[in-house]
Write a protein that binds this DNA or RNA. Sequence first.
DNA 1: AATGTAATGCAACAATGTTGCAAAATTTTT
DNA 2: AAAAATTTTGCAACATTGTTGCATTACATT
Lengths: 140, 140
Amino acid sequence: MDNTTADILKRNQLSVTESRKKILDMFLHTRGALAHADIERHSGTDFDRVTVYRTLQTFVEKGIIHTIPTTDNSVRYALCKDECSAGHHHDDHVHFLCDSCGTTYCLDHVMVPSLELPGGFFATQTDVVVSGTCAKCNHA
Amino acid sequence: MDNTTADILKRNQLSVTESRKKILDMFLHTRGALAHADIERHSGTDFDRVTVYRTLQTFVEKGIIHTIPTTDNSVRYALCKDECSAGHHHDDHVHFLCDSCGTTYCLDHVMVPSLELPGGFFATQTDVVVSGTCAKCNHA
DNA sequence: AATGTAATGCAACAATGTTGCAAAATTTTT
DNA sequence: AAAAATTTTGCAACATTGTTGCATTACATT
C-alpha cells in the first residue's frame, strides 16, 4: 500500500515525500471525490495548509487527479484513470453529486455523449455533473 | 429598459431597489455569464459587496438566474429562461467556456442528452460544461 | 556520506464569503 | 399623502479560503 503510493509518485517523476504519500493515500481509499477542505480536516496537523494546496496542484498537473466542477465554490478532486498523463486529461466520464449525502461519484461507465456544437465552436473537454440521490441514499 | 428590470423583479415578488435593478440590468446586457467578481468590479462603489452576495443569492432562489459549475472556485451566474421559477430550475442546456477569451456561453439550443445512470441513481439535474475555443476566437 | 535539488513550513498577506445590527429605502396600510 | 410595517442596505467585524517569498528541512543523486 505504501509501496503503491510511492510507485505512483515515481511513475510521475515526483519525489516521494510523506505529505504526497498521505494525500495520495486518501484518494486511493476514498470511493468518491475529495475537496481541499476534506483533506485538510482529515489530515489534522500532519502538514501545512499550503502543502495541501501545492500538492493538489502538482497532482492535477501530473494527471494523477482531476477536478470536478461544482456550483458551490468548492472544487472537488478525484483520481484519474490510467489513461491520463501530464497535461492531457481524458476524464470524459460523468460525475454524480448526491444531494442527500454530499458524496461525489465518478460514474466511470457512463460515457459523455458527443454534442453538436454551433458552428465555430470547438470542444477540448466536456464535463457532465449530474445531481440527484445516489443508490445508497435511495435504499435507506 | 428600466421598466423591464422592475417588471421582472415584481413578477418575482421582490421589492424594486436600485441595486437589484442595476445588477439585473447587467445580466440583461451580457451575452455570457457573470461571476461575483465581475459584478463587483463593474459596479464600482455603487453598492456594497455584501449586497451583491445577497442579491445573487436572492435571484438564484427566485429562479431569475442560475449557477454554472466551474473548476476554478469562481461560480458563474447566468439568466434563466422563462420556464424557471422559484425553487425549480430547468437549465438543462449546455454551457460553453472559452479557454481563450474566458467568456461563458449558454448554448440554449444544444440540449443535454439523457443519460443511463447505474441502478439506484436518480437524477434531478444535469449540468454540462464544455471547454474549448468559441466561434469569435476561432475566426480571429 | 556529501552535495545539489526540490518540497515543506512559516509568516504575512490578499481575496472571498458570512453575520448581526442600526440606518435607510421600499411597500403596505390607514 | 402620510404613517406604520416590512424589507433591504451598508457598515463593521469576523471567518474562511487561497497566495507568495524565503529560510529550513527532506529527498534524490553522486
